[in-house]
Simulated scan of single mutants.
Amino acid sequence: MLGYRPADSPIEVNHHLCSGVGDLVEKERYQRLVGRLIYLSHTRPDIAYAVGIMSQFMHEPRAPHLDAVYRILRYLKSAPGKGILFSNHGHLRLEAFTDADWAGSIDDRRSISGYYAFVGGNLVTWCSKKQIVVSRSNVEAEYSDMAYLNCLMRTTSLLLFVYVYTTTSLLHVYKLIAVYEVRLKQSQLFDAYYN
């Protein structure tokens, strides 16, 4: 890895990695590399998405998957000083951002949800995962993701209220205008997820 050129991002933009394409590679080596990257991603949120994608192929790794893992390693080589830094911003406001990629998984066409949350301006949690069910539309995928994140924010707000006594919460949705326009028609769907 010393002779490799550093990468500017941990994964290619608009990647199309799927199972069953390419030659099989040594399974144990791939699992060891991805396992170490999973451990490292707890303090490096910049690689969490890429490592999550690579962990989907641990049972049958192929050459393109190993190349993508090497790209993560090349990215880490180019950015050794990145990590989580907590600082005092003078407030404990809870902010969360969410987005969903409708039918984003090539293998099973499930939507991929992603969110990250800040408490007091500091990143405290993030996630990128496939949704449990196949959504019928982009709006349904957004609603599902927004409802889940709203429950997470309510729980976090309750914990903050117990310890701090006061908190405010903001939920940012990437396609909020599209969600708002359909809100009146599909309010029962959101209410079912919300409650």
Rank of each mutant, 00 (worst) to 15 (best):
L24F: 14
N14M: 10
V25T: 08
I11D: 00
F97K: 04
S128C: 11
P80G: 01
V134K: 15
T156R: 00
Y39K: 12
N88V: 05
S55H: 08
Q188T: 15
P10R: 03
A79G: 00
Q131D: 10
C18E: 15
D23N: 12
H59M: 06
R74V: 06
V179Q: 01
G83F: 07
P61A: 01
N195Y: 09
W102V: 05
D99Y: 07
P64F: 15
N138Y: 05
Y148E: 08
H59K: 10
A117D: 02
Y70A: 03
M54D: 10
A50T: 08
K82E: 07
T167F: 02
V34I: 11
L2T: 02
L40R: 10
R44A: 02
L149H: 02
G3M: 06
N138S: 14
F97L: 03
L94K: 03
A7S: 01
Y180C: 15
Y39V: 13
N138E: 05
Y70R: 03
Y70W: 02
A141P: 07
R183Q: 09
D191M: 05
G35M: 02
P6N: 06
P10G: 01
L85T: 08
G20R: 08
D67Q: 09
N150A: 14
L76A: 03
N138L: 13
V124L: 09
T43C: 06
T43I: 12
Y49A: 11
E181R: 13
V182R: 14
L184S: 15
H89G: 13
R44P: 01
S55Y: 04
K77Y: 07
D46W: 07
V124K: 05
R136T: 06
P64I: 15
L17R: 00
T168Q: 14
M58K: 09
Y116A: 09
M58I: 13
E60I: 07
Y4I: 01
T168R: 12
I38V: 13
G81P: 00
I72N: 05
V69E: 07
D191C: 11
T166H: 03
V173A: 02
E60C: 11
K175L: 15
R136W: 00
L94Y: 09
I38E: 05
M58W: 04
R109N: 07
W102I: 09
L152V: 13
P80T: 01
C18T: 14
E140T: 01
Y180Q: 14
S41E: 06
M54H: 01
V179K: 02
C151F: 15
C127N: 09
R183A: 15
H16V: 08
P6F: 02
T98M: 06
S87R: 04
H16K: 11
E12V: 14
H15W: 13
I38P: 00
S9T: 04
A103D: 04
S9E: 04
L152C: 07
R32C: 15
S187K: 12
L85C: 06
A48R: 10
L158S: 10
Q188E: 11
V173E: 00
S87F: 00
Y115D: 09
Y180I: 12
D107H: 09
A141G: 04
D101N: 12
L37A: 09
I84R: 13
C127Y: 13
C151R: 14
G83L: 05
V133R: 01
A79P: 00
Q186S: 12
M1W: 11
Q188V: 12
